[in-house]
Design a binder for these strands. Sequence first.
DNA 1: ACATATCTTGACTGTTCGTTCCGGAATGGT
DNA 2: ACCATTCCGGAACGAACAGTCAAGATATGT
Lengths: 195, 195
Amino acid sequence: MARTKEFDPDIALERALGVFWEKGYEATSIADLVTATGVQRQSIYDTFGDKHGLFRAALDRYAARYAGAAQALRDPSGGASPLGRLQRVFRMVADEAEPGNRGCMLISSAVERGRCDDMVVSHARAAVASLEKALVATIREAQDAREVPPGVNPRAAARVIVTLVWGLRAMGRAIPDRAWQRSVVDGALGLVTAH
Amino acid sequence: MARTKEFDPDIALERALGVFWEKGYEATSIADLVTATGVQRQSIYDTFGDKHGLFRAALDRYAARYAGAAQALRDPSGGASPLGRLQRVFRMVADEAEPGNRGCMLISSAVERGRCDDMVVSHARAAVASLEKALVATIREAQDAREVPPGVNPRAAARVIVTLVWGLRAMGRAIPDRAWQRSVVDGALGLVTAH
DNA sequence: ACATATCTTGACTGTTCGTTCCGGAATGGT
DNA sequence: ACCATTCCGGAACGAACAGTCAAGATATGT
């Protein structure tokens, strides 16, 4: 017994996510969000609470997607070998580094608000833990397949790669140089496999 | 033939730097800077122009210090070997990751403002280039001293390490876990040296 | 068709933003 | 001692900020 929304909250959230992703939390105003979503102020407040609530919703959605990427590392679709999957995902990160690329919203948010926003910290922790776990599993499989030497410590190597991903994406916000990042990825893979 | 300043612009800049470092550009207000520096609004504008001018001055100062750290990598003081120097600097980065640590202002600024502020981008580029150059030189020396196997590509390895530093410092803003970061540093050094 | 709960709209709240204006105080060169 | 110049302090600027209110519009369950 109520009126139906004229806008799709899902699409609105998606567009709000885009703005937060591009400009960060502080630099994004409600007016920006009204413009980007095409949704009226009050409807935003009715649907998402306040600015931080909308930000949380956006980051939740982004994080779900990011976790999906970590899952893709485990999923043996395409019949690729463990090392092949690692290479593919890793190179995908470097290839994203082109002008106009917004980097990773989780990382940008962690840097901008990690020191004052627990919600952001939780997401960052979860993202690191999930990617680390997926990488440990993949590296172990790669060792079983004799693609990575047994002397490599899977956990340490996984953490190195997680850190490299953060570094690449942080750097990509200001210096989106695909060739440079490629050389990092290839160099790192070379260090892990060469013996 | 003029009145002398009652405040020390050098100290004021130092304190302003501290605020920008902690909170970032957008989240820092002029009122914050007045409070932190103890300097009146008008005097700030007289001395540094506007908010962005003060930010530039602060980042200039921070960058000069950061370049000094890259220089420390080259400087063979303490009689340490090339690899020893690399280890020392690299571990220092990880050891900074404790609660309360503000990370690296250059990196935070690059992430926050890299997409809308050329001044920040220039600084980021310069910092990357300078650290990369210093690392290439150090790795070559380490190879000459047979501390690092000759099969390692100095430039690629240097870029990997630069990226790791960015990753560690970006992550440290939200997840300052010294043990975790130590394992990254040790893992990376292990990959570079082990053969 | 009616009642009612919700949505939309746009004006509006008080606060804070970055910045500027101005009058009085203080200083160094003549 | 005076003058030109700079600095300090505080009030004030319009704009933008996050968030709210109230009234008209609309769709659904009855």
